[in-house]
Design a binder for these strands. Structure first.
Lengths: 393, 393
DNA sequence: GCGAGTTGGGCAAGACCTTTTCGTAAAAGA
DNA sequence: TCTTTTACGAAAAGGTCTTGCCCAACTCGC
């Protein structure tokens, strides 16, 4: 109950946020009367709030068009004033996307590279971000939030990033300094978490699910009621570091190493084929391949099934390199989960393929950008806003 | 953003809730000035709100006592006006407790019985509840909430209860009809969930943890930020129905059956001793027993470890029959979890022993009772409250 | 026993916000 | 042209919180 709700000015602030949220939820330019209905406020109140927001340049007035009765002006968020970026720094490929708060991408840069690491990688990202800005003609000050994906684990308490590779081995401060430009809320987040977040936008996705990122590494993110679940230190979902007995060699190793995609055939008992071939054959319905695939995913399922039951999940999603392999894998996972007691768990492949992580980064940034917009919304008429610089474009 | 915050009357309502929460958080009779500071409201405002609440009989005025300066009146929640009950219907033992919103138990009935089931059990619980009421001299109308524990799974969407035993095989409606008395918010909740909830009150417990209930059945509950996590259908934590290979027989069975407490020695490779003896021996530090115990809990740990990593847990708790076995078990669990990759997970035994579930039921009821108190708080001066009848006592 | 110091309680004025109500404006259709 | 429908604007009213001030009650020290 730490929500500030005291004097009447605070009431106005709350209602301003309400209106702002309604504008966003509506998605398209909206009439005052409609906003009044959505917020359960009266028309004059909404009108006044909208006037203030328009005066400060937060809302955009769309001139009336035809209608039965007197045509109404419609208002929408001034998207180009609040931009966000998302970045994914992969081992051989870096992507930066600039988007509005609605998540729609306005500019994008993708660059192949040869294992750039640390500061060098940050420089590259900074360059790409500048190019995106130049392309859209937006000032850096319009960038309210940005999220950078790292394969490491971001400790929420210390801001330290733990990574087993040199990739994404920064401190949060370094990233903020390099990409923040003073006014931007920059955050660094685990890539598996972001991949999970990206899957929210897939149709028919429930509000709570587990997102499996399965490529070179193995990671998972938990989305709960549409929000990322981070755990106490931010390490939630790090199932790759579980220790399991390798069914082939008998050694105890990290799950991440045991279930590498390339080892799928080996685990399934058909080491003579490649993982792609196995998936393809299973996709064609060849019984032996289906069987082998089921065996291959068993070590993973032994870990995922308890999580499904513990969290009462109905859906898990799969992204990363393996998402290209077609529907054979989700089917095998679903079957095998059922055989382990986790019935009726649907498996959904990411439709974003290798862009899943960037997509999640943009989504994450859009969310924190929106939080910031809400937090800094002007609720009194008066002088010009001191908020993110107005774009001239 | 569906929080009602619109006109000024609503503002008053919010502030009333604020004050009420502050009174509760303070725990003891509190001065107006103090409440003002806690709520960030001004003294006149708090005074007015408190006056209304006192007029309606929600707050109790404690006459001034000594102080430097003018003695201040102190106010506290009129506890005896808002009572709750918790009930645990076990196979051979039923417990009903009546408590205030602070969770302090005012009356208690415990009864051994011979497998009473269904309606018969409900009748017994009703009887015991009546006796508790008689003992405290409270009217039934003061009972604002109650929670009944069931070993079954309560489906949040349908209100149906699924149970593999006849025990606790009711519908939610039946329970409400029998124990609700018209004005009480009765809820039915899984016993493992409630056991987990009870562990919140153990000192130094983090806000998020997993509560393992391990006796005849095996269940778990997840407490997240102090709240019970139920999952989409309410089946969260049902890890007992996982299918695992039994290390002894080689059969695939429900985890619940594989890791029965009585089978611990068998799983550990020392079938000649009893579970109690094994725990005792391990507790004395006998190396062989410690080793056997570790082996014995391995099947369970293989399931719990993924959950710990997925949720980034630092603590799991253990309640149920096994909690009597002393500190050997938590140590073994902790060690074995570490060997599976879930490092630094502390295991805490329930100090409530077989009362853990009732304790959780009372806590759950107190919480929903409090929600109801907040929801029905009077925020305008005027006629007598139409809320839960005033007790004459 | 008495005054200074300290702290709580209460009242009135002022500022702010929302709602209600009424009148006006702008379009489409008869 | 008139009616209907919908949007917009302004004034009045009701309600709430805050600020500022004064009084009340008690302790402590002399």
């Amino acid at each position: 109950m730490d929500q500030p709700a005291r004097g009447t000015p605070q009431l106005r602030m709350l209602n301003t946020r309400r209106v702002l949220s309604a504008v966003r939820d509506a998605g398209e330019p909206t009439r005052i009367a409609e906003l009044a209905e959505m917020t359960a406020l009266t028309r004059p109140t909404v009108a006044q709030i909208v006037a203030v927001l328009e005066e400060h340049g937060w809302l955009e007035r769309h001139e009336p068009s035809v209608a039965t009765g007197r045509p109404a002006a419609r208002y929408a968020l001034l998207q180009r004033r609040f931009m966000v970026f998302g970045a994914d720094a992969g081992a051989h490929r870096a992507v930066v996307e600039v988007a509005g708060l609605d998540g729609r991408v306005r500019a994008r840069r993708e660059r192949r590279h040869d294992r750039r690491l640390g500061q060098e990688m940050l420089d590259l990202l900074g360059e790409m971000l500048q190019e995106c800005l130049a392309e859209t003609g937006l000032r850096a000050a319009t960038m309210v939030a940005g999220t950078v994906a790292t394969p490491g684990i971001v400790d929420l308490r210390t801001g330290r990033i733990t990574t087993r590779h040199k990739l994404g081995d920064w401190t949060v401060e370094e990233v903020v300094d390099r990409l923040g430009a003073g006014t931007t809320d920059v955050s660094v987040e685990n890539d598996a978490n972001l991949a999970a977040l990206a899957m929210r936008s897939v149709p028919d996705m429930p509000p709570t699910f587990l997102g499996l990122q399965w490529g070179q590494r193995l990671g998972a993110g938990i989305v709960q009621d549409g929000q990322l679940y981070r755990g106490e230190s931010g390490a939630a979902g790090e199932v790759g570091s579980l220790l399991t007995e390798d069914p082939v060699t008998g050694q105890v190793r990290h799950l991440e190493e045991v279930v590498r995609v390339s080892r799928l055939p080996e685990l399934g008992g058909v080491p003579e084929v490649s993982a792609e071939e196995l998936l393809a054959a299973a996709g064609r319905g060849e019984q032996g391949a289906v069987e082998a695939l089921r065996h291959g995913v068993a070590p993973l399922v032994r870990v995922v099934a308890p999580i499904c039951l513990a969290l009462d999940l109905r859906v898990i999603t799969i992204s990363g390199a393996i998402a290209r392999g077609g529907p054979a894998l989700p089917e095998a996972l679903r079957d095998e989960l059922g055989r382990h007691g986790a019935h009726d768990v649907e498996c959904v492949l990411s439709p974003f393929l290798e862009d899943t992580v960037v997509r999640g980064a943009v989504g994450h940034a859009a969310e924190s950008g929106w939080q910031r917009v809400l937090a800094t919304a002007p609720w009194r008429s008066g002088g010009p806003s001191d908020e993110p610089g107005v774009t001239d474009r």
